[in-house]
Design a protein around this nucleic acid. Structure first.
Length: 510
RNA sequence: GCCCCCAUCGUCUAGAGGACUAGGACUCAGGCCUUUCAAGCCUGCAACAGGGGUUCGAAUCCCCUUGGGGGUACCA
């Protein structure tokens, strides 16, 4: 039975498989999951595939992968089964047929023989006349004779719900309280389509009942049709589950509902699909933390929290009913934070697929690569997304002579000229040829001593060397980088850089 | 057009009549630290949409306006 109290809740995430899962859907699923776990109830996955035209077979994988990625496990669903199976609506077709007919028998619904063409014309005429569009209930009052006629002709038909002509329907949304709508504003919605498939209005109400759903969390776009749902449930003589319409997630621009398309705002690209976030290297824990705090707030004084803490504190009543845009920059910040909290070993294994793809090096090779052991801890606090790592260390996977120096300036130290910079590089090479052990620490000590001996600022000395070994102006800490490269490789690069600088001496000084 | 929902810094949010000189976080700016870049630490900029009520007292309650959003399909 439906329990509006604090007992174990049965909640469902009921997506329609029409494309990739996006963050809005994921957030709904997250809140469903949080509530199920909080109340020690069940989280159910139900597939609403009653629209055969929009069905996209690939979306099932996207859905399952996305939910699993975030760590949302379901207790009942298409793949795991359960007491209310099947959990795919297209496999429940007969149930809806029977239920729809029951409503017809009760006089709460009726068969409608209007063709799509007639409906289109009707709407067009209504629009032209400046009237509001909607079904004119042509078939609601057909005589028995007329119905027999249509049936005899074998006319296609749908079943429509017969909305009361007068009165007011009141339903309760947990976040917004009682909402009243005049019945005359409502449409005789289609319950069963001509192809025998139900619409959402019928299928969801029937399944929520049969699956004993206690709390319905769904997007705010359903708020307008909620009175119809209340009416349908009433007609069956059932009880309404607790309704919680989650605020829509806005576009990054803050205008309009977030779409599945990548959005460009101010020259920046914003992602929307779950798999895209996955591919960019956002951590599930960071995403979980992030999404939980959009529309709900864990604690005004604590931004970072665990799943367990979130479950402990989560409550439906505290959900904010106003629409929100996703604070993408906060996601990046959080993700960086979570990356920094990883052990180097965990970060390495998370990084492997990214590095392998972007560096073109086999994962197996990277796994046993000594350079990574040294480099990963030092880039850890520099990346916000896993896909940024390659840019930090790609130079370490190049050959010395393929390092390209974009400009001689790269090799020139602060307040030094080209000739002096060549001297720096040579001094560095001398020192590196002998330093023992070849460790970041020992190298650093040697470099600092040398800088003092030479009477130059550390930065002026280190800069050219940094440029020489990495080909970049910005790179990971120098001495770890040198250690990772090894003595021989480093010396080669220094020589390579000296040759380059000397060759461009004219240009550099000019 | 009609119906419904929403309204606190640029963004995510705290706030359920007096504790608000409106708090936190991200972003941004400045500073410290420093081998580049980060990270870290410190400081700063920045909001109750407007107008009426109710009340001794309103960000908080009511109404109107404005703004934003959603819906208006044999889609969900």
């Amino acid at each position: 039975m439906i329990d509006n109290g604090d007992g174990p809740a049965r909640v469902r995430f009921a997506p329609s498989p029409t494309g990739h899962l996006h963050l809005g859907g994921l957030r709904t699923a997250l809140f469903d999951w949080l509530w199920a776990r909080k109340t020690e109830g069940q989280f159910i996955l139900r597939i609403e595939d009653t629209d055969r035209r929009r069905f996209d077979p690939e979306s099932m994988d996207s859905l399952v992968n996305g939910l699993r990625w975030l760590g949302l496990d379901w207790d009942e669903g298409p793949d795991v089964g359960g007491p209310c199976a099947p959990y795919v609506q297209s496999e429940r077709q007969q149930i809806y047929g029977v239920k729809a007919q029951a409503l017809v028998d009760k006089g709460a619904a009726y068969r409608c023989y209007c063709t799509p063409e007639r409906l289109a014309e009707m709407r067009e005429a209504q629009r032209r006349a400046g009237k509001r569009t909607g079904y004119d209930r042509h078939c609601r009052n057909l005589s028995d004779e007329e119905r027999r006629q249509y049936e005899a002709e074998g006319a296609a038909s749908v079943i429509r719900f017969a909305v009361p002509l007068e009165g007011v329907t009141v339903f309760k949304d947990l976040l917004r309280g009682d909402i009243e709508v005049e019945n005359r504003q409502l449409q005789d919605e289609i319950l069963l389509k001509a192809d025998g498939m139900p619409t959402y209005h019928l299928a969801a109400m029937v399944d929520d009942r049969l699956m004993e759903i206690t709390h319905v969390l769904r997007g705010e776009e359903w708020l307008a049709t909620a009175p119809i749902h209340k009416l349908i449930v009433d007609a069956f003589g059932w009880e309404m589950p607790v309704l919680v319409h989650l605020p829509v997630i806005l576009d990054p621009s803050g205008k309009g509902k977030m779409s599945k398309r990548k959005k460009m705002v101010a020259g920046k690209e914003f992602l929307a699909l779950v798999h895209e976030f996955q591919e960019c290297g956002y951590l599930p824990d960071a995403m979980f933390n992030f999404l939980t705090n959009v529309g709900w707030n864990f604690d005004p004084d604590q931004e970072v929290f665990s799943r367990e803490e979130a479950i402990e504190r989560f409550s439906l009543e505290e959900i904010n009913p106003s629409a929100a845009a996703l604070p993408y920059e906060k996601l990046d910040w959080l993700n960086g934070l979570y990356i920094r909290e990883l052990t180097p070993a965990a970060l390495k294994s998370a990084l492997l697929p990214f590095l392998s793809r972007q560096l073109g090096v086999a994962e197996s090779e990277l796994r046993s690569d000594g350079k990574l052991e040294i480099l990963i801890p030092v880039i850890q606090e520099r990346i916000k997304r896993l896909d940024e790592a390659a840019d930090w260390i790609d130079w370490a996977y190049q050959e010395a002579d393929t390092i390209e120096y974009a400009s001689p300036k790269l090799l020139i130290g602060r307040k030094l000229d080209a000739a002096q910079s060549v001297d720096m590089l040579r001094s560095g090479a001398e020192l590196l040829a002998e330093v023992e052990p070849f460790s970041a620490e020992a190298i650093q000590v040697a470099f600092r001593e040398k800088a003092e001996e030479l009477g130059v600022k550390a930065g002026s000395f280190f800069g050219p060397v940094r440029g020489a070994i990495s080909g970049k102006k910005v790179s990971p800490p120098l001495f770890e980088s040198i250690e990772a490269l090894g003595r021989e490789e480093t010396l080669e690069r220094l020589a390579h850089a000296v040759a380059f600088l000397e060759e461009h001496m004219e240009m550099a000084s000019g």
